[in-house]
C-alpha cells in the first residue's frame, strides 16, 4: 500500500463492542458465546436474547465463511476509502453473520455464495479490523 493511500477510520469502540474490536486488534476474529445457553451472537451485546443470561464467553472464529450478499459502492466517495468499496455480508461457518468488505478481488468476480476468509487491515489510528478475500487466493 502506498504511503499516501487512503486509510479507513478506526472503529468506534464502546464498552459493549470492545470484545470484538480488541480481539481484532490482535488479528483474532471472535464472537460472544452465551455462557448460559451456548448461543453465539454478533454484534456483541450485554444480554443473551434467547435465555437472558448476562454471562458471556469469547468464542474464537475460524474466519472461514461464505458471501451472503454484497454491494459495490461507487458513490458518494469518502477520502478514507478506495473505490469501489465492495461491501459484504459474510456468513461465518460457526453461524454468525458479519458486515465487512472484500479485498483482493475484482468487482466482476464477486459471487454470492463464494467462500471467503478473513484477514486484517490497519485503520487510521492503528487498530486492525477484519476484512475478507476469496478463499481460492489463500
Amino acid at each position: 500500500m502506498a504511503a499516501d493511500a487512503p486509510i479507513r477510520p478506526s472503529p468506534t469502540v464502546t464498552d459493549d463492542s470492545a470484545v470484538f474490536w480488541d480481539a481484532a486488534a490482535e488479528c483474532r476474529l471472535v464472537a460472544q458465546r452465551c455462557a448460559g445457553c451456548g448461543r453465539l451472537r454478533h454484534p456483541p451485546r450485554p444480554m443473551c436474547p434467547a435465555c437472558s443470561s448476562l454471562e458471556v464467553e469469547i468464542a474464537e472464529l475460524s474466519g472461514q465463511g461464505t458471501l451472503y450478499s454484497y454491494a459495490i459502492l461507487h458513490h458518494p466517495q469518502h477520502p478514507a476509502f478506495e473505490y469501489p468499496v465492495i461491501a459484504a455480508l459474510v456468513d461465518l461457518e460457526e453461524g454468525v453473520r458479519l458486515l465487512s468488505c472484500l479485498t483482493d478481488v475484482s468487482k466482476d468476480d464477486v459471487r454470492i455464495g463464494m467462500p471467503v476468509h478473513a484477514h486484517f487491515v490497519p485503520t487510521a489510528d492503528g487498530p486492525l479490523i477484519p476484512v475478507f478475500r476469496p478463499s481460492e487466493d489463500l
Binding site: 472503529p11 468506534t12 463492542s17 454484534p43 468488505c101 479490523i129
Partner: peptide, 12 residues
C-alpha cells in the same frame, strides 16, 4: 448498528 458498518466504508 452503523458503528458496525462505518469502518468498512458502508457509510450511506
Amino acid at each position: 448498528a452503523m458503528q458496525w458498518c462505518m469502518p468498512f466504508g458502508v457509510l450511506t
